[in-house]
């Protein structure tokens, strides 16, 4: 009876031993196979034919690799128990299927109804399937709709997450930044100092106070004072290296953290350079201002360091500079 079969859907064909005309079976189950008792595929639904041409006449067991029940190699194996099958094509693409096999009323063959299961998205892409390839009652199209909807919503959510992350970073950036000068603020300095102490590597703390700054504010006003602070911030930023931290702690107090820089000669040279640059006349709102700076330096060799005591040692050295006549750089006693 295979010889007389026509593959076009809708044309009259002899009834298969299922008791249903092939075109009826096809409308209900476009992915069915009728397998004869010897394992030969006698009839294939139109969607199966779209996946592999010429299925009819081939051996079911040569076309498919049976994963469950494992080792099934005959039609009685297929229909044993509840006939629940897991299988895949032996050749590429090795599309996976779920299937149900039921024994035919006569002749010892089986009717096998296949479905893509979770591999449906890949299968539709690989075989260019469309809505007509699925039974009207199959939820495949709704499933693909949901996959599409999920992708649309997810990509929107990803974009939004990136936006929110960016906004959060910007907010944290502002929270860690001194609003006037753009240097780090005290909070950021404390965090960085703690990180350096935890890291256990040598570093230096350089505390700096401007000299004669109050006079600028009193004589020329706060706008001129702000210009001076901005200029000083620019000088500090210009003198530090990547990885160093420059912070304004408030008023005319500044602080530098210098990881890896503990050589007294280099620190002393840096202090002198900073003071010299700051002592250059600063044009601020139409007037010329003159300020200087006092600096105190404390060095940590990285072991047993304590943030508070480091800062207070640097502070003490700073006051020593002030007492010694300002415009100079003093090193703290001992090491921490």
């Amino acid at each position: 009876m295979t010889a007389s079969r026509q593959s076009e859907f809708g044309k009259a064909r002899p009834a298969a031993p299922t008791g249903l005309a092939p075109e009826v079976l096809e409308r209900l189950m476009p992915m069915h196979l009728v397998v004869a008792a010897d394992g030969t595929i006698e009839q294939a639904g139109r969607t199966m034919t779209r996946l592999r041409a010429g299925l009819e006449g081939q051996s079911f067991f040569e076309v498919f690799d049976l994963r469950r029940p494992a080792g099934a190699c005959s039609v009685p194996d297929l229909v044993a128990g509840e006939g629940r099958l897991r299988l895949g094509f032996r050749d590429f693409p090795r599309t996976a299927f779920k299937a149900t096999a039921v024994p035919l009323p006569e002749g010892g063959g089986a009717l096998v109804n296949l479905s893509f299961g979770i591999s449906i998205v890949d299968a539709v892409r690989q075989y260019h399937l469309n809505a007509g390839d699925f039974a009207e009652t199959d939820l495949a199209i709704e499933m693909l709709y949901l996959v599409e909807a999920k992708h649309a919503v997810m990509s929107d959510a990803e974009r939004l997450t990136a936006q929110i992350y960016g906004a959060q970073q910007a907010a944290e950036e502002r929270a860690a930044t001194d609003a006037l000068t753009g240097l780090r603020n005290r909070r950021a300095l404390d965090d960085a100092l703690q990180t350096l102490v935890d890291g256990g590597r040598p570093f230096a703390v350089l505390q700096m106070d401007l000299d004669h700054f109050k006079a600028v504010n009193d004589t020329h006003g706060h706008a001129a004072g702000d210009d001076v602070l901005l200029r000083v911030a620019a000088i500090l930023s210009g003198q530090i290296r990547k990885g160093d931290i420059a912070a304004r702690l408030g008023g005319d107090e500044f602080c530098l953290l210098l990881p890896g820089t503990v050589d007294p000669d280099r620190l002393s040279a840096l202090g002198k350079t900073l003071i010299a640059r700051i002592e250059e006349p600063i044009r601020a709102g139409g007037v010329t201002c003159h300020v200087s700076a006092s600096i105190g330096v404390a060095v940590s060799q990285g072991t047993n360091a304590d943030p508070a005591s480091l800062l207070s040692r640097a502070d003490a050295a700073l006051y020593a500079s002030k007492h010694a006549g300002r415009g100079r750089c003093t090193f703290a006693e001992g090491e921490g």
Partner: peptide, 12 residues
């Protein structure tokens, strides 16, 4: 474009 695609799932 995703909205157009989702709408087209409504029918062939």
């Amino acid at each position: 474009a995703p909205i157009r695609r989702l709408l087209r799932f409504g029918g062939e």
